[in-house]
Amino acid sequence: MSALLSVEGLRVDYLTAHAPFTAVRDISFEIRPNEILGLAGESGCGKSTVAYALMRLHKPPALVRKGRILFQGRDVLSFSDKELRAWRWSEVSMVFQSAMNSLNPVMTIFRQFHDMLRAHGPVTRADAMDRTAQMLEMVGISADRMHAHPHQLSGGMRQRVALALALSLQPKLILMDEPTTALDVVVQREILQEVLRLKDKLGFSVLFITHDIALMAQISDRIGIMRAGEIVEIGAAEQIVSAPAHAYTRSLWEAMPTLAPQMEGATHVV
């Protein structure tokens, strides 16, 4: 199967006052059509840096030193600004880490949907409203909240809005950087099942970044484990869960907080 996105020998440096700091060290991986690739690793290992570079949203002092990023065979690093604008959000979108703070604080939720939709083609106000209502309902927010400003929503609600925005142009690849960390586990599971359902229906791929490895194991097809800018292990989810090859992967599993077994009754109510 040919890859939707392939990354070859990507290296990203942060230029500092001293020697440049290499945050991503010559990593290679691919994301296949319709696949969820999980990327896990401890804070500072370079996960977000990878995501920003893939979308070419990295800004100085970050610098892509070498490597190639191919999206459906097209060389992303050589896109013109115009090509980039057309490509971003409509073919690849991103839910940012601390997405809850990535919304524009002075614009209503509706305005942010309207602007995004308008930037990619003509749309009437009424159509934009319908679309916004539909996307909000999909992530479990009642449509009448579209006129709220971000500070009037809870952290988890803002995070759901960010997810709805990323899904709204039906991109082929969605980069999700800790998309559900501010949510309760019920909503988290509902949203992820909804993402899976939409993926089955519409067909898209996901790069799923999180440090919740239990959650990652629940939804990823394949998982890559990063440490200090390198991918130390990448493989099928079952293998990473039940037969991790690298000592570092095993240590991540051991550090995972676990719940005491329930006193009575089944573990699952459904």
Binding site: Q188, R189, Q193, A214, V269, V270
Partner: peptide
């Protein structure tokens, strides 16, 4: 109970077709 049951369990795979939980 719902909250407790939704705590991620690496042994349980989520699917898009499982409408039971929702």
């Amino acid at each position: 109970r719902l909250l407790r049951a939704a705590v991620p369990d690496p042994a349980l795979r989520l699917t898009g077709s499982d409408a039971g939980f929702a």
